[in-house]
């Protein structure tokens, strides 16, 4: 096996005197889907946000596609990069947010073409053609002209997925992508994510959807209080949990 696409080791992060990540280890191979499960406040989202340097880690390291994200290795030390250069690294890392965060002043189509045109310098016509393909792939080929407020939560989240995919990322991060949705809209977003996983996209998914984890995750990590307490294949962790907190959690959500 080649070098893992994402490698996190001993990641620590504090807000003031509260340590929210207490040494998190995680590896994700290319094409793998990894689900992060755990109770609220366990640090799952914070860890995910560290992977694309929306949060700066205090200790440890996170390598994505061979680069220490947000840093450059010089003379045996990790020097923090200026935002401009972090921006270049983030092109490889797509992210989907709990609250969608679509640009409200741009149509669905413009949301998807924004990155390719503004960041990658692609030609508008070409970017629009690819965006239409992506919108069709998430089932919204006919809604390109709609503004986000004219779309349901599930449709907005699918546009957000298309927007992230438009950058042709090497890995996709999902931060509780269905938590802000009405229950009846969860399925349409999960279907898109399942299809994406089947197509071989490398994904790290913070979720409470145990069913989704069971169906597509190659690997499940269970986090409590800023640390991974149990990890393994979906079957191992979900069907035969060893740690008491994992058992408690699964008993409640299932």
């Amino acid at each position: 096996m080649t070098e893992p696409l994402v490698r996190a080791h001993g990641v620590r992060k504090s807000y003031g005197s509260t340590e929210v990540l207490k040494g998190v280890d995680l590896t994700v191979d290319e094409g793998q889907v990894v689900c992060l499960l755990g109770p609220s406040g366990a640090g799952k989202s914070t860890f995910l946000r560290c992977v694309n340097h929306l949060e700066t880690i205090d200790a440890g390291r996170i390598w994505v596609a061979g680069h220490p994200v947000g840093f450059v290795l010089k003379g045996g030390k990790l020097h923090e990069l200026p935002e401009r250069e972090v921006a270049t690294q983030r092109r490889d890392i797509g992210m989907v947010f709990q609250r969608f965060n679509l640009f409200p002043h741009r149509t669905a189509m413009e949301n998807v073409t924004e990155g390719p045109i503004q960041v990658l310098g692609r030609k508008p016509a070409e970017a629009r053609r690819e965006a239409l393909e992506l919108l069709t792939r998430v089932g919204l080929g006919d809604r390109g002209g709609a503004y986000p407020r004219e779309l349901s939560g599930g449709q907005q989240q699918r546009v957000a997925i298309a927007r992230a995919l438009a950058m042709k990322p090497k890995v996709m991060l999902f931060d509780e992508p269905t938590s802000a949705l009405d229950p009846e809209l969860v399925g349409e977003v999960l279907d898109v994510m399942v299809a994406l996983a089947r197509d071989g996209m490398t994904m790290i998914v913070v979720t409470h959807e145990v069913g989704f984890a069971r169906e597509v995750a190659d690997h499940v990590a269970f986090m409590v209080d800023g640390a991974v307490v149990e990890s393994g294949s979906a079957r191992e962790v979900l069907d035969n949990p060893q740690h008491q907190r994992t058992r408690q959690f699964l008993a409640k959500v299932l």
Partner: peptide
């Protein structure tokens, strides 16, 4: 969240 979304697609 808008700034985070912009950062996430690699905007400077």
């Amino acid at each position: 969240g808008q700034i985070e979304a912009a950062k996430a697609i690699g905007m400077t």
